[in-house]
Nucleic acid binder design. Structure first.
Lengths: 217, 217
DNA sequence: CCATCATGTAATCATCGATTACATTTTAGG
DNA sequence: CCTAAAATGTAATCGATGATTACATGATGG
């Protein structure tokens, strides 16, 4: 953080809160502001993020070529937090029980999605920006895909699955958690008779139903 | 609510380019234009719909108090088409086989969602407008919820289900099809290894996996 | 010490949703 | 019929937004 030089420059602002002309780390602050806007339910706009950072409306474009690039950076940050949650959950699951790990994965997925709906939406929907434009997001996602496939392949190898069609099970599992998370996000759960306080229990019930369904008796 | 009677054609139409000052049925045309915009992937804006209807940018506001009201009307139209598809599918399913009807429902749901992704999105996501603002949409949806519950209750009554927790099965089933439809919508399927030509088959596979999982034996 | 580059500001543009004042057409009542 | 009111479209305008440009300022390194 460079200290300002009050000696030379013409006193553009003698008041004690004279901020330096340069912000310091505007890029970071803009991402955080956008994340917070999303978390608040406010629609994310470049100008509003700039406003929160107490900076002119054009300033963000020095750090992001356009709105989509800002949103991509926001999504990358959200995705990082998401992955952290997943990895912590898997770190606590016994490495030997493939199906148990698959279950822990699903629970962590839903847990995070329920608690961070706006961030989950930014990650998941392609509306805010083209997902393919972020190499980090693409890579991260491929790793998660590979991870679930590995867990199911292991489970199949241990003779835990009823069906040998690992890919179909993988897609179905992903669709299940994604669908549940989006139902929550899109406000469908109340309309389907799931009250607020009931959500976490239902998330677990749905996952266990699925695990039971694919497991060999 | 103008219930129009287009009984008498206007003589003004003689001159080729002299269009009538009044549009005729602008409301209907705007809804269709918006539906088409969505189907094309173009973002739906009031102005663009007006442009397609060859009408001034302010004209739509004579028929809809705001953008959300237009979107709600569009969603109602889309929902009507969706329901038609569902009802046709159920009309062909034997009334006695509750689980078979449940399956047919899921297949019709996914079939329509795969072929009308933009319309499905308008129906399903709450971003375009507040779903609660449309009584028709709310009622329609409640009927579908009740319908699935009935099918599952029947199946349980016939001793076809492994678990007695009908509600959990209902939510899981809905999450499954909703999640699959949204994965398609959000462009996730290719990233999860499901190619274009494979989608229909995978949709069926996912549903059958679920049915097998919840069925006794 | 100074030249260069990164970073922020100010002004401006086009688009969009929305509102208002006004014009035109349709329709209903006497 | 005729005319007054209601319905419907136009034109002009507002505020917010994403985006671009010219310019000002401050940081950095040779």
């Amino acid at each position: 953080m460079p200290a300002r030089q009050p000696s030379k420059p013409r006193a553009r602002r003698q008041t004690p809160e004279a901020r330096p002309y340069h912000h310091g780390d505007l890029r970071r602050v803009l991402i955080d502001a956008a994340l917070q806007l999303a978390a608040e339910g406010t629609e994310v706009s470049v100008r509003e993020a700039a406003r929160r950072a107490a900076v002119s409306p054009g300033a963000p474009f020095r750090h992001f070529p356009n709105r989509d690039a800002l949103m991509a950076a926001v999504a990358e940050e959200a995705q990082r937090r998401f992955r952290t949650e997943i990895e912590m959950a898997l770190g606590e699951a016994p490495a030997t029980d493939a199906l148990g790990r698959f279950r822990a994965f699903g629970l962590a997925y839903l847990r995070w999605a329920m608690r961070n709906p706006a961030h989950f939406e930014i990650i998941s929907t392609g509306r805010y920006f083209a997902h393919g434009s972020s190499a980090e997001l693409t890579r991260d996602n491929a790793e998660l895909v590979a991870l679930t496939e590995q867990m199911l392949t292991d489970a199949a190898g241990q003779g835990l699955l009823r069906s040998a069609d690992v890919k179909c099970i993988q897609i179905a599992g992903r669709a299940l958690v994604y669908g549940f998370a989006r139902m929550n996000l899109d406000g469908h759960l109340p309309r389907w008779g799931v009250e607020q306080g009931e959500i976490d229990r239902m998330a677990e019930g749905v996952i266990d139903l699925f695990i039971t369904g694919i497991a060999k008796h």
